[in-house]
Design a protein around this nucleic acid. Structure first.
Lengths: 182, 182
DNA sequence: GTCTATAATTGGATAGAC
DNA sequence: GTCTATCCAATTATAGAC
């Protein structure tokens, strides 16, 4: 995970403090080891997104989910994992799908469920909950996501709380109760 | 560009119909060739984003910029280029920055300029034009962007026009003239 | 089970003829 | 300038001793 997708078995054995043959006793090929490591990393890194409290204020729920999402997205381990998944997407699209489901996909589904419930209660004007959830996360994360994957510094340096607050405010203007949907 | 960042000089020479030595006569190292190819590709792929007409309706300007942005983002060549930039980000962050500036960065600056002008005219309620522009592009592209990089199929298949229309509508509710900013 | 030593292959780069 | 043939380093995987 530290050295990226093209790390050698030699380097892995060195870091593990064993010889190559010891690794080959546990994994038949480098591919097998790679898949096992990535699957494990996806489990470790995509920590379960807390289910929102159905009774809480939309602004508070959005802020909490938003901060969790941004923190996960900017986590150095998560960035490394995503780079590896992108670099090997041609050989292992299944691993990419695994990450999407467990990470951003889960966050999106959780928020969409909450938005649907709030729409029924009349506290939000959300026609398509999955689209609205994507709008929320997309507003916050899009630019920073690309930059972190490319190793490009974000100017000005990202302020998570501010980004979250701006996205929450914009989302509530777009999907608040008084809004006319079309 | 077809085979990805780890293509061999052998394969490149074969595709070019020459021998390796012929390539080495033009480029001192594989690195040099790589940088030249990527720089050229960035130029080719990030076609100049049309400057918005200052007088046009916000909804129409947003729809045009949105469609251009989505088309560029989903272009197969652009996806391949981005994968290569991500895979080599540790060795060549400069190339990633080049792409960001020329591609999404340019689109964002163009939209931000337009939004600032419209805010002065009172047709939009935009406090921070760069943030608002990022909100617009982020709403449309975020999820699809990650999926295309990872080679994961988007379910349901993406409908550019619909995504653009939904983002334009949400943006205008959030940043339309009647909106209360905070 | 683990280690050292060693295939066997690949791939970047070069030599030397034409 | 271009080609063929070759060098050399790195890397995956295995053999065989302990």
């Amino acid at each position: 995970m530290e050295q990226g997708h093209d790390v050698s078995m030699e380097a892995i054995a060195l870091a593990a403090g064993v010889s190559k043959q010891t690794i080959y006793n546990a994994f038949a090929t480098k591919e097998d080891l790679f898949v096992a490591i990535v699957e494990d990393s996806v489990d470790r890194i995509t920590k379960v997104v807390a289910e929102p409290d159905p009774g809480a204020e939309p602004a508070a729920v959005l802020a909490t989910l938003g901060r969790d999402f941004m923190t996960l997205m900017l986590d150095e381990r998560a960035i490394r994992l995503k780079r590896i998944l992108v670099a090997t997407s041609a050989q292992h699209p299944r691993l990419g799908a695994l990450f999407v489901q467990a990470g951003p996909g889960q966050a999106r589904r959780r928020l969409a469920e909450y938005l649907a419930a709030e729409a029924l209660r009349g506290r939000l004007a959300v026609a398509d909950p999955m689209v609205a959830a994507e709008h929320f996360f997309g507003m916050m994360s899009s630019h920073a996501h690309l930059c972190t994957l490319l190793g490009v510094a974000i100017e000005p340096p990202i302020d998570i709380d501010r980004r979250v607050d701006l996205a929450v405010a914009a989302f509530l203007r777009a999907y608040g109760p008084g809004t006319t949907r079309r």
